[in-house]
Design a binder for these strands. Structure first.
Lengths: 209, 209
DNA sequence: TAGCACTTGAGAATAATTTAACAAGTTTTA
DNA sequence: TAAAACTTGTTAAATTATTCTCAAGTGCTA
């Protein structure tokens, strides 16, 4: 039975299913039951079936799930076959690393441009992505459709930059700065990567095991 | 009332409290109530009090919490005043970015060494961290106390590398590879940064708002 | 100092999430 | 082909997480 409101807990598990199914595809496995999938992923079969049932009926009694088909369904739910457009602000070490290594296209994103303040890199390009000056940012956004902005800038200016971008119509942020961004409009979506938070939870767990 | 088993949900909120309290300190704010803190962080006062009560009694009726004191308490719980030792395996773009920019010392970690296969960088150092060849890894671990290994290597070898490190006694992993690492021993802790998972949840949310 | 406005920590109530159970249907095997 | 072995999607139960409520205690003000 399709559900209207999907909980965050479910959404956060979807990419992991997608990853596992991609792996199963690569291994040439054609079908899988919720039970076997659960064993591989170390979660219960019940949860898997409950999760999938939020979006439709993808399996067949007595058979299980067709791996390739299920992968395509979940990919579709996540939007990997969309064509989202993305720009990056801040091409320091981290921005550079993402441009060079992250498989944006496999996740349905096209990186159209990057912006930075450093004259040394303005005018150059990284992995085919042109780097412009910050002065060119507003004009670029007005002339292009931009779905997501990656923030890989120093944290001091993060909220100001975000506010400005929101005023220009940006509604999606992939935030690598160490601050909690916010917006009065619930229409604006933030997804944070907080390195320090992550390492601190590990610190807690190794000290308290 | 101190609790024995702290849920993951609580632990994952601790770093955010710590961050917010650090910010309040910097702003010179001396005391704060759970209500005001909740307003700043956009969570309920109840949850804050419930979370803190897992670890002890840090506030005072009618007064609230002393910011600096509470920050120190949470920092202590998270282990920022521990001296954890860490090594990095894989000094590509991402590893390099972390070595250059991530404030390891502020989170209680000392980076003792990094390892890579590339002859071009072996023998050099990044931000004071010496880069050794992979051949020197086992010896280094035997001769030093290593609490956490940062995995910033290509994913194909991630699980093998992890298995080998576990056999050498490593019990903590900060994993940036795109695979789900596992160990039969629950004593081994993995903390994952899955960039693609993160971006895909954003993709879902901008497509379904 | 007395009264009022705050505030915590804890227990109870509510909400959300996860797990179990099972009817209904499919596949495999003998 | 018939029976046994599987497997799903769904509903119900159990568990976990969050929010509400309030007694008890503190600080401020007149």
């Amino acid at each position: 039975m399709k559900k209207e409101n999907i909980s965050d807990a479910v959404i956060r598990r979807l990419p992991r299913y997608y990853r596992q199914l991609t792996d199963l595809c690569a291994r040439g496995i054609v079908r899988i039951s919720s039970h076997s999938l659960g064993q591989e992923m170390n979660i219960t079969a019940s949860q898997i079936r409950q999760d999938f049932s939020c979006f439709g009926e993808f399996g067949q009694q007595g058979y299980g799930y067709n791996v390739e088909e299920l992968r395509a369904e979940i990919g579709h739910i996540l939007g990997v076959d969309n064509d989202h457009h993305l720009i990056m602000i801040g091409v320091g070490n981290l921005g550079h690393a993402l441009l060079q290594n992250f498989p944006f296209s496999q996740t349905g994103f096209t990186v159209d441009a990057a912006f930075d303040v450093s004259p040394a890199i303005i005018g150059t390009s990284v992995n085919g992505v042109p780097i412009y000056s910050m002065e060119e940012l507003d004009g670029f956004i007005r002339e292009h459709s931009v779905d997501v902005v990656v923030l890989t800038i120093p944290q001091s200016t993060a909220q100001d930059t975000a506010d400005h971008l929101i005023s220009l119509g940006i509604r999606g942020f992939w935030n690598f700065t160490n601050v909690e961004l916010s917006s009065p409009s619930s229409d604006v979506k933030f997804e944070n990567i907080h390195f320090a938070d992550s390492l601190l939870t590990l610190s807690y767990r190794i000290a308290n095991r």
